[in-house]
Every structure is written in C-alpha cells, then in structure tokens.
Design a protein around this nucleic acid. Structure first.
Lengths: 154, 154
DNA sequence: TAGGACCTTGGAGTGCGCTCCAAGCAAGGA
DNA sequence: TCCTTGCTTGGAGCGCACTCCAAGGTCCTA
C-alpha cells in the first residue's frame, strides 16, 4: 500500500516552526523524506523542484533513489528564503541556471540579488504601512468595544 | 467592437505607483473605469469582488451601471492593504460579512484584525531574516566581482 | 522469504486570484 | 441614423505553485 505523503507541519491551526527539525551533524546523505522533514516541503514538491530545474543534480543511490547532501540542503534553505520574499519560482530557476553556468555569471547573479533586496525592502515598507492602517482600525474597535461594554454595564 | 480592458500600470518593467491617481475631491460618484484607474484594479476584478461578496452593495445609475461612492473607495483602500499582507480573499470576504452583519460583530472583527496584525509582524520579521541572507550573499558576490576584476587587470 | 514502509516516474488534478469572452444594452457625437 | 465608447451579465479560461495518482521497484526487519 502506498503511504500518503502528508504535508508536514505548516498546515492546520497551530503555528509550527517554518521547518521541522534541525539538521543532524556529521551526516551528508539524506533520503527525500528526511529532506521533507527538515525543510517542511513535501517529497512531491522536492521532486517537482528538481523537474523544473530549481535544484542542482541530486546524487542517487545505486538503485536510483535520491540522496541529498548538505549542500543541497543549503540550497533549499536559500530557496526557502527567496520563496518568502514572494519571488516567482521561474526567477529562482533563472538564478539556479546562472549558478550552473559557472563563474562568468557572477555579475548577473549579483544584479538579481540586489534587485531582490530592493523588492524585499519595498515589501517591508508596504507592510509597515499596512500595519499602521491595522493599528488605527484596531484602536477604533478597542474604543468601540469599551463603549459597548460601558453601555452594557450602565 | 468591444474595447479590451487593459490592466493599468502594475504590469511591465517600470515600477509605477500602486494605484493610478489621487481621488478628486468633491466627487462622490464614480464609474467602474474611474475606480479602476484610481485603485489600479481592473474593472473585471472590481466586478468579481462584488460577485464574491467582498464589496458592499454598490449603487447603480438608472440604467443599471455601477456608481461607486467615496466610502466604496475607502473600502477598496482597506482591501488593497489587506491584500498586501497576503490575506486570502476568503478571509477578506469573511470580514466584509462581519461588517454587513452589524455592530454585534465588533468583537470578532477586532479579533480578526489583531490576528492579521500578528501575521504582518511575523511577515516583517521573516523578510528581515531574508534580507540578512541576501546581504550576506550580495557582499560575497561583491567581493567575488572585485577579485575577478583585479585578476583581469593583472 | 515475507511484509510493510518507502522510493520511482509521467502525467493529471487542485485551489487561488484573477482574466477574458460573447452577446447585448445605453449614451453621446457626426 | 449610424458609429464609437463604455457598460452589463454568466460562465469559461489561465498561470502559478503545488499536489496527487497509478503502477511498480527497493529497503529493512524478522
């Protein structure tokens, strides 16, 4: 019977950590499910990342099963960060291609990262603006709540 | 021939303002295309927002055309802010329902806004973490670029 | 040697947030 | 009167980022 590959944490009501566990040290070969547990991604998503070119070549065992290494986990950490910025997967694939193409793409990678950095800064500013609006609304409702409460107690 | 309702700004390479224009004062009736220009949303999206219950009832002209009022634009401003936080449309619809249901939903609205506020704060923290990673990468590439340049000039 | 957990693949399906289409109505100018 | 422009509707389509399925092979423990 095929086991359903359930999503780790990240679903449901409670706020779990963004990724399951800390990486055990001294290890440098991980199965896909271990990586899923470590990153919070599903095995499906890991295979999909590979298919679309977002991952470098992943080592295989003699029977063809994936064996991820620490450098792959490092890459996934970066991908996770970039994903948080809202960067489209296609852009991350582009970055991955640049890395694969070698040292002569340093300048382009540099530019891409700087542009992303600017995006993140803009996003933070946006969110701070939104926070201000929320705070105004919240204090309005807090006041309204107090008014209703005092009305009820009268 | 039906005119194609092109998206205003927001597309393409250059970074325009998040919404087209400032609201003219003294006016309190706007056609859908005026609202599209003011908010940066398409007319399609405005109609869709109405269909899914994200908008309050919009006034109509004697021939059935939408006539938005300033309070509708205020609401759209809030929706725009909430959208920036990544709040799902379904949650915004829920908030809109609470508003329609009247004063006895103040407590729930308050809770929803506070939860959103927490999400936004968490998001900002995440982004700042990502910024740190980007800055490390960027300084790495800056150094690598300098090294390559000095190598070339040797 | 069995049994169950885990892995493989290509391709199809899902949910979200729009985005567009077709067919038609209404208003205003030449 | 015609023509253009802009508006109306329900429903279909799209792009993204997964998410899952079916059918089968492998690993591990007993």
């Amino acid at each position: 019977m095929t086991v359903t590959e359930t999503t780790t944490t990240r679903a449901g009501g409670c706020a779990g950590p963004p990724q399951g566990n800390r990486r055990p040290d001294g290890q440098d070969r991980y199965t896909i499910s271990e990586v899923a547990a470590l990153t919070g991604l599903t095995a499906h998503t890991l295979r999909w990342y590979e298919r679309i070119g977002l991952m470098p070549h992943i080592d295989r065992s003699h029977t063809g099963q994936r064996r991820y290494r620490n450098r792959d986990l490092d890459w996934l950490d970066l991908v996770g960060k970039l994903r948080l910025t809202g960067m489209p997967v296609a852009d991350m694939v582009r970055y991955a291609e640049l890395v694969r193409e070698g040292d002569h793409t340093y300048a382009e990678r540099f530019a891409l990262l700087k542009a992303t950095r600017e995006d993140v800064l803009a996003r933070i500013t946006e969110l701070q603006g939104t926070l201000a609006v929320l705070d105004r609304k919240i204090s309005f409702y807090a006041d309204a709540g107090r008014a209703l409460a005092s009305e009820r107690s009268r």
